[in-house]
Design a protein around this nucleic acid. Sequence first.
DNA 1: ATCACTTATATGTATTATGAATATTACATA
DNA 2: TATGTAATATTCATAATACATATAAGTGAT
Lengths: 243, 243
Amino acid sequence: MNETDFLKEYDPSAFQRPSVTVDLVLLGLRESRPTVLLVRRAEYPHIGHWALPGGFVGIDESLDDAAARVLREKAGMAHAHLEQLYTFGAVDRDPRMRIVSVAYLALLSEQALEAALSAMPALLPAAIQVPWAGEAGGPVNGLSPDNETLSLAFDHADILATAMLRLRGKLDYSDVAFALLPELFTLRQLQDVHEAILGTPLNKPAFRRRQLDKGWLAATGAHEAGAAYRPAELYRFQRPVTN
Amino acid sequence: MNETDFLKEYDPSAFQRPSVTVDLVLLGLRESRPTVLLVRRAEYPHIGHWALPGGFVGIDESLDDAAARVLREKAGMAHAHLEQLYTFGAVDRDPRMRIVSVAYLALLSEQALEAALSAMPALLPAAIQVPWAGEAGGPVNGLSPDNETLSLAFDHADILATAMLRLRGKLDYSDVAFALLPELFTLRQLQDVHEAILGTPLNKPAFRRRQLDKGWLAATGAHEAGAAYRPAELYRFQRPVTN
DNA sequence: ATCACTTATATGTATTATGAATATTACATA
DNA sequence: TATGTAATATTCATAATACATATAAGTGAT
């Protein structure tokens, strides 16, 4: 900003300021389906509709800290893969007042997702219904446990769409897939994650080769227990060496 | 946000709100070097340092509209490729007051950049010095016309780094390169853009083939004039067919 | 005019990545 | 011990890519 603009702002009453919030896309897999955790709106507007959990950004709180706090307060989680997604600032996105919302993507492993559901029974796990293939885009809504389409409050269907686009885009060059898996996992589980996010089946030997060639996977020598047939080896994610 | 939080906010004096600004990374190429347009700070803090042009977001103005307005007011441009980059919200990023800044990337062709410099003589075109290869990351500063390193004000070196990361990342799967080129261009010019952004030389035949195979390029049949040697064919960017 | 020079454009070849099919291995259960 | 099934390994054809080299099309000097 330039100084003239700024000096006007020094008088706090001179200009109205938007409110700033964070909204969280709490995303994990349930039975190999991408799932988002929603809260039910109890008040006008969009009363009865489902929404992403969120909260106001404190005046002495960074955006990242606010997202971490909402993760703690609304999902009862101390840690998760948390990354800023996009900032939504249409004038009429909230009918009550001007709100600029910084959306965050929070990735949960299956256990973490179930833990959040136990800790916060008000949360609804909604299967994510992506009505387009690849990176086409367009609003994305959830599915209730009894398979009804949930039309999300505010512009949250757009936020969810942005989350799915981001996930699909960075799935194969980043480590996001591992944030959705437990500490130890099999190659099949890793492939299931990729297929669930992308919404398409993948070639198994080619997938294995590519993943192993990346050098991000450390074989543990241990194998999964109780498998009906040949047990798969367990791998651990090993951050690629930075050179 | 939940209702309790919201209702508290209904009293505008109950909680302090951050100010919301947009900052623009006005980026183009000058003599095949990535260049950013900066403004000199005339006041405390960071007086005398160079900064990204920016402005406050009006209460009745969307983030995108605010970015377009700043583009108009600070660079005298009606149109440019404009995309939201990232939102910077550290508590102490501005020592005067709490400011959340939504950074936008504005891509200018060489003519547009020169036009902006003519229209707004206060703007400084600074060559962008990226001190890391690939997608490593880390703050990025500019270079003054007499090759001195300019340490940017506030966290603007981080914003510039984010811009370069974003550009490098989406260069080969998106149309950003064409935003840096004139309407008609040669394959060599397109390759120059890629090499300037990536900071590495590229193999010429492979580059040509890949670009032509994408189907984004329409040959015009016309050729560049006044070339010292064999004139290259002029191409036009043709938005890929969406199916 | 002819030739040298330079860059655009085209072609060829080795290497690497990918997709698909098939074979082998390991374990549980009947 | 045989059988079923999925994990893992191997094979091969095809596609993408990097690199080297050849040809084409202009300008300017001789």
